[in-house]
Amino acid sequence: MALRFAARKVLSSSAPLVHKSGTSGESIFVRGRWASSSSSSSDPSSPKPNKKVTHDRLASVIDAVNDRKLPPELRGQRNNVRSETDIINVVEQRVWHAMEEGQFENLPGKGKPLDLSSNPHADPAEDTLYRILNKNGCAPEWVELNKEIRNSIAGWRLALRKAWMYKGGSDDSKWLELSEVLKLQLRDLNNKVLHYNLIVPFGRQMFGFKWEREIDRLNDEIQMDK
Results as ranks from 00 to 15, higher is better:
N119Q: 08
N119Y: 06
P120W: 00
P120T: 03
P120E: 02
H121S: 08
H121I: 05
A122N: 12
A122D: 12
P124H: 08
P124I: 04
A125Q: 10
E126M: 02
E126G: 00
E126R: 04
D127E: 13
D127Y: 09
T128A: 11
T128H: 11
L129D: 12
Y130A: 00
Y130I: 00
R131W: 00
R131K: 02
I132H: 01
I132V: 01
I132L: 09
L133K: 08
L133Y: 04
L133S: 02
L133I: 02
L133H: 01
N134Y: 11
K135S: 12
K135D: 08
N136F: 03
N136D: 10
N136I: 04
N136A: 02
N136W: 02
G137V: 12
G137W: 07
C138I: 07
C138E: 11
A139S: 14
A139C: 02
A139G: 01
P140Y: 05
P140I: 07
E141F: 10
E141A: 07
E141P: 00
W142S: 13
W142E: 15
L145M: 14
N146R: 14
K147V: 15
K147C: 11
K147E: 15
K147Q: 15
E148Y: 13
E148G: 01
E148H: 13
I149D: 00
R150Y: 13
R150F: 10
R150C: 05
N151F: 06
N151Y: 10
N151G: 13
S152R: 15
S152W: 14
I153N: 01
I153G: 07
I153Q: 07
A154V: 05
A154R: 15
A154F: 13
W156K: 06
R157A: 03
R157H: 04
L158R: 06
L158H: 12
L158T: 14
L158Q: 10
L158F: 12
A159V: 10
A159K: 04
L160S: 10
R161Y: 14
R161K: 10
K162G: 03
K162Y: 12
A163T: 10
W164G: 01
Y166E: 13
K167H: 07
K167T: 03
G168R: 13
G168P: 06
G169W: 01
S170W: 07
D172P: 12
S173N: 08
S173G: 07
K174F: 02
K174I: 03
W175S: 00
W175C: 00
L176H: 04
L176E: 11
L176T: 05
E177V: 00
E177S: 10
E177H: 10
L178Q: 15
L178P: 03
S179I: 07
E180P: 00
V181W: 06
K183I: 10
K183D: 13
L184Q: 03
L184A: 12
Q185W: 01
L186C: 10
R187M: 04
D188G: 05
D188Q: 13
L189M: 09
N190Q: 08
N190D: 07
N191L: 03
N191C: 07
K192Q: 08
K192I: 01
V193R: 09
V193I: 11
V193E: 04
L194H: 01
H195E: 14
Y196H: 14
Y196K: 07
N197C: 04
N197F: 05
L198W: 06
V200M: 03
V200D: 03
V200F: 04
V200G: 05
P201C: 02
P201D: 09
P201W: 09
P201E: 03
